[in-house]
Nucleic acid binder design. Structure first.
Length: 467
RNA sequence: GGUCGGAUGGCCGAGAGGCGAGGCAAGGGACUGCAAAUCCCUCUACACGGGUUCAAAUCCCGUUCCGGCCUCCA
């Protein structure tokens, strides 16, 4: 039995996972800044860490998974001006868009999903603590800064030196002791939302909220902190700085997912709307998009293309097709089983691509078993595949993906199709292939695929979308 | 300038000293009235130049190219 090892950005090595408290895992994942609709890069992070969470849970841990919502920041305020709507309406609109995207991709809701604006109290407490300990200062203009040169281990995650950083172009040194000092709190500007503090009214800096919320929900020390690669600096460095300066051990391990790239480059707004989740879901189903996003290793760049997405969906349908046929033959959905091969792959820093090779092998074996009529092998293969898909969040039997048209409707539809199939079989028996093909083509035009198997004709609803 | 990563077959994507991952596409075959689905076979690669080693896609040195971060970022 292998045991779980995970990569740690801090040490740049893979090491055995040992929880702080036996049987428990606390994870904090930096979630969305809700200022635009989600694109696939955003949800890749959600999918990757959802797989981690599922695997930890399957491994027997009680997982507390926190993913925050940043619902106040500069961009949201700008967007609000642009959209001529209150900032909170903008934030809520996009928060819902993110929730919809996560749901479509079967990313389980986090244990708790705190919003920044709901934790101002905790942020003020944290700032007070930092000032009291001499780590932060309020120069009197309403801002509060963290004094980075006083920290011993600042920038260890990104392995940089304070003096090597390019000074920020817009650094205001009127109040900062050092241009690299960063704002915990920003003084209120006229017209912007603000909250009262002992140092003046204002709003949180970008980094403070995560330290405050991680502390509130996971305590002074927790197991894993996650996020996208681009958050390492400055966001995660600053979280570490704030939390450690406050006297907390903070996160024991750091995990970062790589990007979805397009033409070799990190996705950006310039690509327009085409890679938004909502747009892509017009071409493939949620389960297929998830399969695509989850199938590359989380630390590898995933080069997006519509062709690659389409081919990934094709590959998934082959697996799904086998499970459906197996279910028909076995008379019930396969019971999920986690194979040793899958366990070994997942325990090796979530080696999903390796695990996928095992799934392909099982599909091949299972399909051969259908031909030979070996029910034991069919059941074993199907169980192993379903067990793996469950962890990857791509189980086609998951209620998240099953379109609930109602059992009655499916039965009625089946009755109608069986009627047509009986006509077709009769036509084939009298070698009237023109008539039989007419029935098959007619059903195909309605999106119903007919396949002749050794057990007779079977039908399924086409998953291939026209686009 | 600092720092971090990448280059693998037609395409996508693993692997990290020896037994050619896997998928998709393509070609051939089996099955089929024809399809579809499925199975079998074929195509077999590690940017370049040195080095270490019995053995290098993998380690070391160098080169080229691509990309991230350096205070908005998943």
């Amino acid at each position: 039995m292998s045991s779980l090892s995970l990569y740690d950005t801090l040490t740049r090595t893979t090491s055995p996972f040992v929880p702080i408290k036996a049987g428990e895992v606390g994870i904090y994942l930096c979630g969305a800044t809700v200022q635009a609709p989600p694109h696939i890069g955003h949800v890749r992070s959600g999918v990757n860490f959802d797989i981690l969470r599922r695997w930890l849970t399957k491994s027997g841990y009680n997982v507390t998974f926190i993913r925050n919502v940043t619902d106040i920041d500069d961009k949201i305020l700008h967007k609000a001006v642009h959209e001529k709507a209150p900032w909170w309406a903008v934030a809520m609109k996009y928060e819902r868009a993110f929730s919809d995207a996560y749901a479509a991709l079967n990313v389980a809701p986090p244990t708790y999903e705190p919003r920044a604006t709901g934790h101002i109290t905790q942020m003020i407490e944290l700032m007070a603590q930092l000032i009291e300990r001499g780590a932060a200062y309020a120069p009197g203009n309403g801002d509060v800064y963290l004094e980075v040169r006083k920290l011993d281990s600042y920038l260890t995650l990104s392995r940089q030196k304070v003096d090597d950083l390019l000074p920020a172009a817009d650094a205001d040194e009127t109040y900062k002791k050092d241009p690299r000092d960063f704002a915990l709190w920003k003084a209120a500007k006229p017209g912007d939302p603000s909250w009262p503090t002992p140092w003046g009214a204002g709003r949180p800096g970008w980094h403070l909220e995560c330290s405050a919320m991680a502390h509130a929900y996971l305590g002074e020390a927790f197991d894993i902190h996650g996020g996208g690669l681009d958050l390492i600096f400055p966001h995660h460095e600053n979280e570490i700085a704030q939390s450690e300066a406050a006297g907390y051990a903070f996160s024991k391990r750091w995990m970062h997912n790589a990007w979805v790239t397009a033409s070799g480059e990190k996705m950006s707004k310039s690509l327009g709307n085409s890679l938004q989740v909502a747009e892509l879901l017009k071409t493939v189903r949620g389960i297929e998009l998830r399969w695509y996003l989850g199938s590359a290793h989380y630390r590898s760049m995933l080069e997006f293309s519509h062709d690659a997405l389409a081919e990934s969906a094709t590959a998934f349908r082959r697996i799904e097709g086998f499970l459906n046929r197996a279910t028909e033959i076995l008379g019930s959905a396969p019971i999920p089983v986690i194979s040793q091969g899958f366990t070994d792959a997942m325990n090796d820093d979530l080696a999903v691509p390796t695990a996928l090779a095992g799934i392909s092998e099982a599909v091949r074996l299972g399909n051969s078993a259908i031909t030979s009529g070996d029910k034991a092998v069919i059941a074993a293969s199907a169980s192993e595949i379903r067990g793996a898909l469950e962890i990857l969040g791509c189980d086609p039997f998951d209620s998240a993906f099953v379109i609930s048209g109602g059992a009655d409707l499916t039965e009625a539809l089946d009755g109608v199709i069986q009627l047509a199939l009986a006509q077709r079989t009769a036509a084939r028996d009298r070698k009237d292939f023109a008539a039989s093909d007419q029935i098959r083509d007619g059903l195909a035009a309605l999106g119903i695929i007919i396949e002749d198997t050794a057990q007779g004709p079977r039908w399924s609803i086409s998953q291939i979308s026209e686009k």
